[in-house]
Simulated scan of single mutants.
Amino acid sequence: MLTLTDNATAIVNTLVSRQTDAADAGLRIHSTPAGGPDGGARLAVLVTPDPEPEDQVVEVSGTRLFLDETAAAALEDKILDAGVDDEGSVSFAVLPQVA
């Protein structure tokens, strides 16, 4: 199951709270039409008040993520990390879980 680092939890919660007042809002992670350079899934994120009907909802420490089918499969055994650079841009990293 997808897990989040403390940084990712804090950043996602901040992003969601700044962009919507909806109580059940979350960060939606979904696949994009173009594949990544290695042929793997290319994922995008956006804050949304509700999941799409087919989304898998993952809640970790009050942080809600909505994953489409491709994202759910790609992130099933991963760790989501996040950071903010000096200019305030957010970046996400997907890391392998250590067994």
Results as ranks from 00 to 15, higher is better:
residue 83 G to F: 07
residue 75 L to M: 06
residue 11 I to M: 04
residue 91 S to L: 11
residue 67 L to N: 04
residue 93 A to P: 01
residue 54 E to Y: 08
residue 32 T to N: 02
residue 80 L to D: 01
residue 27 L to M: 10
residue 78 K to E: 10
residue 71 A to Q: 01
residue 66 F to V: 07
residue 24 D to M: 10
residue 71 A to F: 04
residue 35 G to H: 14
residue 13 N to P: 00
residue 20 T to Q: 07
residue 59 E to R: 07
residue 92 F to D: 05
residue 65 L to T: 03
residue 1 M to S: 10
residue 97 Q to K: 15
residue 74 A to T: 13
residue 94 V to W: 09
residue 83 G to V: 04
residue 21 D to I: 12
residue 18 R to E: 15
residue 82 A to H: 04
residue 28 R to F: 05
residue 81 D to K: 00
residue 51 P to C: 06
residue 23 A to W: 10
residue 97 Q to L: 11
residue 79 I to Y: 07
residue 51 P to M: 06
residue 48 T to R: 11
residue 96 P to E: 10
residue 86 D to W: 15
residue 99 A to S: 13
residue 62 G to P: 02
residue 75 L to F: 05
residue 1 M to E: 10
residue 20 T to P: 07
residue 19 Q to N: 13
residue 91 S to D: 14
residue 43 L to W: 06
residue 62 G to H: 06
residue 46 L to A: 15
residue 14 T to I: 07
residue 8 A to N: 05
residue 62 G to W: 09
residue 74 A to L: 06
residue 63 T to Q: 08
residue 34 A to N: 09
residue 29 I to E: 00
residue 68 D to Q: 00
residue 76 E to P: 01
residue 28 R to D: 00
residue 5 T to Q: 03
residue 9 T to D: 12
residue 76 E to Q: 12
residue 26 G to H: 02
residue 20 T to V: 05
residue 19 Q to I: 05
residue 1 M to Q: 09
residue 41 A to Q: 03
residue 46 L to V: 14
residue 53 P to S: 06
residue 79 I to W: 09
residue 76 E to H: 13
residue 7 N to L: 07
residue 23 A to H: 10
residue 30 H to N: 06
residue 4 L to W: 03
residue 85 D to Y: 08
residue 34 A to G: 01
residue 63 T to W: 04
residue 23 A to G: 10
residue 83 G to M: 07
residue 17 S to M: 12
residue 28 R to Y: 03
residue 81 D to M: 02
residue 63 T to M: 08
residue 73 A to L: 12
residue 69 E to R: 14
residue 70 T to N: 00
residue 86 D to L: 14
residue 7 N to S: 11
residue 84 V to N: 02
residue 89 S to D: 14
residue 98 V to T: 13
residue 9 T to Q: 15
residue 7 N to V: 03
residue 62 G to I: 08
residue 36 G to N: 13
residue 82 A to R: 05
residue 96 P to A: 04
residue 89 S to K: 14
residue 50 D to Y: 13
residue 45 V to M: 10
residue 31 S to T: 12
residue 79 I to F: 07
residue 75 L to N: 03
residue 78 K to N: 03
residue 98 V to R: 15
residue 33 P to W: 10
residue 75 L to Q: 02
residue 34 A to Y: 10
residue 2 L to E: 00
residue 68 D to I: 06
residue 27 L to Q: 04
residue 46 L to C: 11
residue 98 V to E: 14
residue 30 H to Y: 15
residue 2 L to Q: 00
residue 47 V to Q: 05
residue 44 A to N: 07
residue 72 A to V: 03
residue 67 L to V: 07
residue 33 P to S: 09
residue 53 P to K: 03
residue 61 S to M: 14
residue 26 G to T: 05
residue 8 A to T: 01
residue 32 T to K: 08
residue 23 A to V: 14
residue 60 V to I: 15
residue 7 N to G: 01
residue 84 V to E: 08
residue 69 E to Y: 09
residue 55 D to E: 02
residue 64 R to E: 01
residue 97 Q to P: 00
residue 86 D to P: 02
residue 81 D to N: 08
residue 23 A to E: 15
residue 58 V to C: 03
residue 89 S to P: 01
residue 18 R to H: 14
residue 61 S to E: 15
residue 7 N to Y: 11
residue 91 S to H: 15
